[in-house]
Design a protein around this nucleic acid. Sequence first.
DNA 1: AGATTCGGCGT
DNA 2: ACGCCGAATCT
Length: 277
Amino acid sequence: MERKRTDCPALPPGWKKEEVTRKSGLSAGKSDVYYYSPTGKKFRSKPQLSRYLGNTVDLGCFDFRSGGMTGGMTGGKLQKNKQRLRHDSLSLTKGGKTDLNTSLPIRQTASIFKQPITKVTNHPGNKVKTDTQSHTDTHTQRSSEQPRQLFWEKRLKGLRSSDVTEELLRTMDLPKGLQSVGPDSGDDTLLSALASALHMSSSPITGQMSVAAGKNPTIWLNTSQPLCKAFTVTDEHIREQELKVHQARRSLEEALMADGLARATENTREVFEGKTA
DNA sequence: AGATTCGGCGT
DNA sequence: ACGCCGAATCT
């Protein structure tokens, strides 16, 4: 039945939406909605889409079934102003490759995707100004980006890594003695903040040097540093870390060996049974 | 194996 | 009533 993959207006080019009507069973007549990324991966739920796109995008106002944005604060209940999508892994159609999203959450007050803006005036000759890739093209020069929110790292809360199966990976442990500054004193946010700082910046990460930053961040916060109290790295820390790296490398080596062996034996078995794939 | 399809749990 | 996802079924 209905087997058409339509372009989804709300999503960046390359994404397709599909609606399949159930044709039998108790739920006959109902339908399921799927999305396909430019690379062809199929998505069957909003959480799955969200996981894939990363926390960079808040699909809070995205309606999975219809494929559109659900309007702002309509109706009685006040809706949280959380709405931001992004506009990235989608516009990255060039690399042909990666679907990976390693970018960090960016403030996005307006709509996620490219949308025409209609300017209403009394004057004739008004045109619709379409937002091509003017500002958001920022993939190369991001650090110099305009105003940043003071506590933008809050948006990193809940950011977790997962493997290809989307199984959540165990989080890392931070060395004792690291303390966050500002709201969200959670360990996970701290970890994300530090990881982001290391990821984005090429200069040393020292944390917030001024004690006053805790009291009055508006004035004293050093915005080029993560929301982490100043810390000192001891030789002991360094040795611990070296040990961890060694252990990780050993595990990796073992895993690779085991995998290689497994493949080898499987191949020989198949040849033996005469089923060469 | 991968894709398709419906059931059914949880909200 | 519906979103989400497991698993049976199909190719």
